[in-house]
């Protein structure tokens, strides 16, 4: 008899993803599902899907899901958590959703120390709508709406959400990871697990920012995209723990 050494996580739905070839959403979905399996929380977990490339995320997990309006996932998650505090709530959001239209909801969920977990995918571009400038697009980055490159005089600077949220008294665990290498993928999984554990232990607001690629809208191959992420995003968005007060009382 053959031994199964690799299989689909139980919390991940057995359906085809709609993501473009080389996109890293699939990796992050899998990591979340693995963590849900490891913690044995699928039956208690409610996910909140965003508007953006991950809009169909409500079909990709086997736990209960709610689809939120653009940027409102942290507010929706707040409502779900306040209704049933024993449930485990996570939102899955991109940079446009979390750092542009939903900045207020993000900041205030953090400052209330809302006991929820946010998985934030930062790929420095709007994917679903076809590659427009995101709040996290880098200076000089060419997008559909910055055809001559993002100019500081016109569009200002890219926003660093992890650093900003870490300054808030209410945030408990904030970490920036990346899925550009096996080592970093493993670290992202461990960080997502820690963020969920923070919520299970009722320690308050947790967020894992994941630097991700968008080969389609960056106009690069998947392999070139990984290089672009390392060469351009990592210097501006350094990986690491920005806040961790999960060790103490809260």
């Amino acid at each position: 008899m053959m031994e199964t050494i690799f299989e689909r996580p139980k919390a991940l739905a057995d359906v085809p993803f709609h993501y473009c070839p080389g996109c890293t959403h699939g990796i992050v979905h899998r990591l979340i599902a693995e963590v849900i399996d490891e913690l044995g929380i699928e039956g208690d977990t409610i996910g909140v899907a965003p508007v953006g490339c991950a809009v169909f995320a409500y079909n990709y997990f086997n736990c209960d899901m709610q689809e939120a309006a653009h940027g409102r996932a942290p507010a929706v998650a707040t409502g779900i958590k306040r209704a049933n505090p024993e449930n485990i709530i996570f939102t899955y959001q991109g940079d446009g959703d979390l750092a542009a239209i939903g900045t207020a909801e993000t900041v205030h969920a953090a400052t209330r120390s809302e006991n929820i977990t946010i998985i934030f995918l930062n790929n420095a571009i709007y994917g679903m709508t076809g590659g427009q400038m995101a709040p996290t697009s880098l200076v000089g980055q060419v997008t559909q709406t910055t055809p001559y490159g993002r100019k500081v005089e016109m569009q200002g600077y890219p926003i660093r959400m992890s650093e900003m949220l870490a300054t808030l008294e209410g945030s408990s665990f904030i970490k920036r990871c990346s899925v550009d290498s096996i080592k970093n993928i493993n670290d992202t999984r461990a960080s997502i697990k820690k963020a969920f554990q923070c919520q299970i232990d009722k320690k308050g607001f947790s967020m894992v920012e994941v630097l991700s690629t968008c080969p389609t809208n960056w106009g690069l191959s998947p392999a070139e995209s990984m290089d672009w992420l390392r060469d351009n995003m990592m210097p501006y968005y350094p990986l690491g723990v920005y806040k961790d007060v999960t060790g103490g009382d809260r």
């Binding site: 909140v48 939120a68 409102r72 507010a75 409502g79 207020a104 909801e105 900041v107």
Partner: peptide, 16 residues
């Protein structure tokens, strides 16, 4: 933090 957030909290809680 806003009316926008409030109604979306209502959405979440109603859904729950």
């Amino acid at each position: 933090e806003s009316e926008v957030a409030a109604i979306n909290m209502v959405y979440g809680a109603a859904g729950a």
